[in-house]
Amino acid sequence: METYPVSTRRRLQDQVFVWDSRFGSRQKHHLESHRLTPENQDSIVTTFIRELRSRLDSPQHDYTALRDFLEKANEDDLKAIRGSAHDDKIRILLDDRRDDTGWEVNGLRHWARDWNSYADGYPPEGQNVVSSMMNAKGLYRKQQRSQLADGAERRILCISDLSPLCGLALIATAPRYQAPILRDYLQRYIRKCVFFGVQISVGFTLEFHLPYYALRSHAEKKEDS
């Protein structure tokens, strides 16, 4: 326990601490605005595979399966204003929301979060809740805009049966610093690897893969390499 001289304690007691309302909402991390930018004639897939690689990476980390998967899609289909024959079907559920801030105690307004609202085991529903379903092109356009400009502190994506075009929408809009994490995740997903892991680098990543097969009767024999 720290002790202070009498004069210091009196000075601390006389200070009035005022919560800065700016901290009532999540501040945008500057790294989130730095996205992958292909150089020369490189494609976004090549840039994504190469980004933040290490010379110490083992040979099995060549991401051949991931490259083959992503190159089945065309980035022009994401940027096209009008629809095309390669449009992806709706397979994405997106949820945006902002945590509640601002609460009153004895008539005094506090701009921080009311942590007592988390005591029941579930977080509060939040504010500015927007849930929508979309395809890969819709995700690409949504991710191009600022998340905070849409009034969302946290964004949740649920993607059913990831397609190459959907994967392309993810890597083309992801922050640069997230490329290694997203690259390893997608590689494990494509190769149906069993994986449990926690990673703490720039952020916190909890990841697990539980691939499975659904067996059904069919007239043709399914080849599985």
Results as ranks from 00 to 15, higher is better:
F195D: 14
H34C: 13
Q60K: 02
R9T: 13
E104Q: 15
A214G: 07
Q127S: 11
P164D: 04
K72I: 01
K72V: 02
L186I: 13
Y63W: 03
G121V: 04
A149M: 00
Y212I: 05
S132L: 11
D224Y: 07
Y4T: 09
P124C: 09
H30M: 06
I190K: 10
P124D: 01
Q199L: 10
V6H: 00
R50T: 04
K72H: 10
T64Y: 10
K79P: 03
R55H: 05
A119F: 04
Q41K: 05
T47W: 02
L170C: 06
E220A: 14
Q199M: 08
R216P: 06
R9M: 06
L157M: 14
Y177A: 14
R155V: 15
D62A: 02
H30R: 11
E39T: 07
G107W: 01
F196T: 09
D95Y: 15
K79G: 12
S43D: 10
A112V: 09
T205K: 05
Q15F: 01
A112I: 04
W111N: 13
I90G: 00
R91V: 06
Q127A: 13
H30W: 07
W103V: 11
C193E: 12
T8D: 06
E71C: 14
E104I: 15
P180G: 04
R35V: 05
P38Y: 02
A169L: 08
S131P: 01
L52T: 10
V202W: 12
N106Y: 03
N116D: 13
G203P: 02
E75H: 11
H34K: 10
L12V: 07
E71F: 04
G151V: 01
Y213V: 10
D14A: 14
H29L: 13
S25K: 15
N74K: 08
D120A: 13
R91A: 04
V130T: 06
Q199G: 03
H209R: 14
K79A: 15
S163W: 01
R9L: 10
I200E: 12
W19Y: 15
V6L: 03
K79V: 11
S7Y: 06
L170I: 07
H61T: 08
K222W: 03
E104K: 15
N116Y: 08
S163R: 13
A174C: 14
E75I: 12
A136L: 08
S132P: 00
A80H: 14
L206N: 06
Y122S: 05
R9V: 12
A214F: 00
H218S: 08
Q127R: 11
L52A: 12
D88M: 04
V202G: 03
T46A: 04
P38E: 01
K89G: 11
L162K: 03
Y122W: 14
A179G: 03
Y213S: 06
F48I: 09
L93I: 09
M133L: 02
A172E: 02
R183F: 08
L66T: 12
H29T: 04
S7M: 06
S146Q: 03
D96R: 04
A179C: 10
D42Y: 01
D62C: 03
H86E: 10
G107T: 05
Y177W: 13
A169G: 02
T47M: 08
C166H: 03
P38F: 00
V202T: 10
K28S: 14
S160H: 11
G167Y: 00
A119M: 09
N116G: 14
M133P: 00
G24V: 05
W103G: 12
P123G: 01
P124A: 05
L78A: 11
I181M: 15
R141P: 01
A112S: 15
L186P: 05
G121P: 08
